[in-house]
Design a protein around this nucleic acid. Sequence first.
DNA 1: CTGTTAGCGCCTTCAC
DNA 2: GTGAAGGCGCTAACAG
Lengths: 348, 348
Amino acid sequence: MEPSGGAKRATLAQVAERAGVSVMTASYTYNRPNRVSEQARSRVLAAAAELGYAGPDPSARSLRRGSNRTLGVVMGEHLTYAFEDPEAVSFMAGIAGVCSEHGYGMTLVPVTGAADDVTRITDAAVDGFIVWTTSDDDPVLAAVRSTRRPAVVHGGPAVEGMELVTIDNRAAARAVGAAAWAGAERPAVVCFPLDRDRRTMVTKGGALPGAAFPVTRERLEGYRQAAEAAGIAWQDVTVAVCARNGADEAERITAALLASAEPPDAIAAMSDRQASGVVRAVRAAGRSIPGDVAVTGWDDAAAAARLGLTTIAQSLRDQGASCARIALGGPSTRTPAWSLVHRTSTRP
Amino acid sequence: MEPSGGAKRATLAQVAERAGVSVMTASYTYNRPNRVSEQARSRVLAAAAELGYAGPDPSARSLRRGSNRTLGVVMGEHLTYAFEDPEAVSFMAGIAGVCSEHGYGMTLVPVTGAADDVTRITDAAVDGFIVWTTSDDDPVLAAVRSTRRPAVVHGGPAVEGMELVTIDNRAAARAVGAAAWAGAERPAVVCFPLDRDRRTMVTKGGALPGAAFPVTRERLEGYRQAAEAAGIAWQDVTVAVCARNGADEAERITAALLASAEPPDAIAAMSDRQASGVVRAVRAAGRSIPGDVAVTGWDDAAAAARLGLTTIAQSLRDQGASCARIALGGPSTRTPAWSLVHRTSTRP
DNA sequence: CTGTTAGCGCCTTCAC
DNA sequence: GTGAAGGCGCTAACAG
């Protein structure tokens, strides 16, 4: 199961010998071609071709130069998640664009939630890390920090010694919450998981345990403030905590809420994916939007426009690009812009 | 703009000195903990903690071991494309899953279509490559081959010395083509680009230049065979070549076809994304599906089910996983399964 | 323009 | 259970 490494690779020294030049001339041929005579250069390249030498070994070069020309991206729990969530994909596309511009590669560091995550991070041959939003207590953060390489966290938590790129989730939640709760009497939040245990629960705002994910925590706080501004006590707001960010789970949990004794008449979701599920459940229950139930999303994904969702617009792509630029030591925004997009899923 | 590398990292030798042991004892502490006395071990770890040593340097280790524990993925032209096409994303998710299982990282190699692509590939510190389908003449192939590392091409072309994982595109195109052309008199193909120039054109099958992308070529050949089996001469089949795989371009080009003197009554697209655009254009023109125009897609994406598209089902995710397993030296399928899914967009 | 020297940080080998 | 030597393949720094 181990990679064979293919046929044995020739070394620069062998190429130099065959070409009848010193190792340095061979090295220069690859690194400073114009510092080498045309003649020497072609002899080196000829020797390389004969030996099937494909150029300097990248690891040796990295060791010598002290840089890998690669950024590491840590996406949390399951690497495949990175590809399943369209917003995560946008984020990665933003990173990819900047890496590409700078001739950098992008290594996805596999993290599973298991104990060896730390090893996988300290073992990654990268020049800097970008960490997708995670919980306050995620050991991955300490591992990344311990490498002493430039590191940028997206979303949160804020970690001393690491950069943070995030919108003001609390303010954005206040804004979209105000739209959601307008004219509502029985509001509900369809919520991201609170911590890495990802326990599902339905409770009231007052009874909610603290959230270990800062993004979740900040948004809840914003919804709470919006509720109180609308004259609704937080302890009267239903909070339905999902295990994951996805439409299906949001749909099921919404269906349950609507079938309960106190069906909500306004539902704020934490993503447009969740909101899509909410919309399906509301329609399936024969209720109208926003007449019977107001619905809000988050992200302004394509689905949001299609469904007429009031939502928070932000560019995960730009945020990914910012993270990458910062990791590469350049300047960029730490507090990206967001805006409230009013559509037809909320009461005017 | 260069990464700072953060604070200077301590070396194993420094840790050993501080712990009052030899370098080897320190090394064993990280690599063979049980070959070291409890006492020595804890002194080494204490020294490491004091110095902020995060473990052996990955590049040095790679150099010494001759392996990077990382697979390289080459996605062609624009790295961001990898994240824009849902099928490509599935494919990457499949790779990610296998890498994750094996504790391997996954490096996305930035390739732009420019001359330095070759450099970027030979510079990548990876143990093997997976190359997303490309054209026969793509220099990336020779570059990957020259590294003499295990390499797997997905889709094509077949390259001596590299593995190939692909469905039988010709047979699949024959199958879906048969469904598309049933009862048709003016068939058309909405086609992927023929070569890396990505020139747009509308022509007849007989006048079509050869395609440099094997996947495109094979599918065209399958459609041709299906046409002839249905008693339609290839030179009578319209082929609309798009610059990229996307719904919008397919929609525009279909609108033009429908407005022409000989509007097609059957359109076979090369992806469900393209087919979505085709469906939009057909509806916008006030034609019915399949009554006025039969439509087929490819991939059996979510959109295909939603639109009732007859299409070819295949799992890009499984194919990504296969590629990764093969690159890691394990066994896996080279010829994945596909199947024809009959829905309502074609004539019975 | 070309060559020599001296490591980059680590781990395999072999001795004790 | 521990350590000394040597080298993985390459290139910065400095001659010439």
